[in-house]
């Protein structure tokens, strides 16, 4: 494997976030999940008006505050301090989730443990017997947003595939994912299954397939 690994350069975390950010057009209402997806906002220029939503009732989030300008009453769903852009607004939790569940968000970007080629996503528990599973808003976001994109490493830390023909972890939602951005590729979920849109520089389709349990397709 090392011989082939040397031939390509995976996307860095920053580049992964940039890849997602580049595909978000002005005017979209977007929720970014906790973890790597949160970094996507840093790569959308402020003059491209994308409106970021957070589950705890924040619409129109801006960049993180400078240390001496923290507003202790303004946090996001990851419980980090945030800012509001001009035009930002607050609402209560049921209205905030009405934005999600009512299909008003153009896009949600989540991390995941596994994505299947029918769009199933597993991102909240790695066992049926998790001691105290914590789901948060993931199921609402996955079922409710107009589009669900996943941003994650292509394979797990132990090398096992995360793009699979069937999720083995407990599901978050069925047939929900439209696109997956990884450190190796960008892949659309279509009726044919996974279709590869983009690969890390130097990576071959065969090499990508070798790191993917589900069958990959090239664009028609």
């Amino acid at each position: 494997m090392s011989a082939t690994t040397a031939e390509f350069k995976p996307f860095s975390r920053v580049m992964m976030a940039q890849n997602v950010a580049a595909d978000i057009p002005e005017g979209w209402y977007v929720n970014l999940g906790i973890g790597i997806p949160t970094a996507v906002a840093d790569h959308v220029p402020l003059d491209r008006e994308v409106i970021f939503h957070s589950e705890n009732g924040v619409l129109g989030m801006g960049p993180a505050p400078e240390k001496d300008k923290i507003e202790p009453w303004l946090i996001n769903a990851g419980k980090q301090y945030v800012t509001l852009r001009a035009g930002g607004s607050m609402c209560h939790h049921a209205d905030s989730f009405a934005m999600i569940r009512g299909g008003h968000l153009d896009l949600c970007v989540l991390g995941a443990f596994q994505v299947a080629d029918n769009g199933d996503i597993a991102n909240w528990a790695t066992s049926e017997n998790d001691t105290a599973p914590a789901v948060g808003g993931a199921m609402d976001l996955a079922a409710g947003a107009k589009r669900l994109w996943v941003l994650m490493e292509h394979t797990a830390k132990d090398g096992s595939a995360k793009l699979v023909s069937k999720c083995t972890y407990p599901l978050t939602a069925m047939a929900a994912v439209k696109r997956v951005y990884t450190n190796l590729a960008t892949v659309d979920v279509t009726e044919r299954g996974f279709v590869v849109l983009n690969m890390a520089p130097g990576l071959t389709f065969e090499n990508l397939q070798a790191r993917t349990e589900a069958k990959l397709h090239l664009p028609a």
């Binding site: 989730f97 009405a98 999600i100 569940r101 105290a132 599973p133 808003g137 609402d140």
Partner: peptide, 22 residues
């Protein structure tokens, strides 16, 4: 919470956050 839950001394009902709010 985790200590009580593992000891079976508290019942837990997990609800998706939006379903909880609704």
């Amino acid at each position: 919470f985790e200590t009580l839950y593992r000891a079976g001394k508290i019942e837990l009902e997990i609800v998706p956050q939006g379903t909880l709010a609704e």
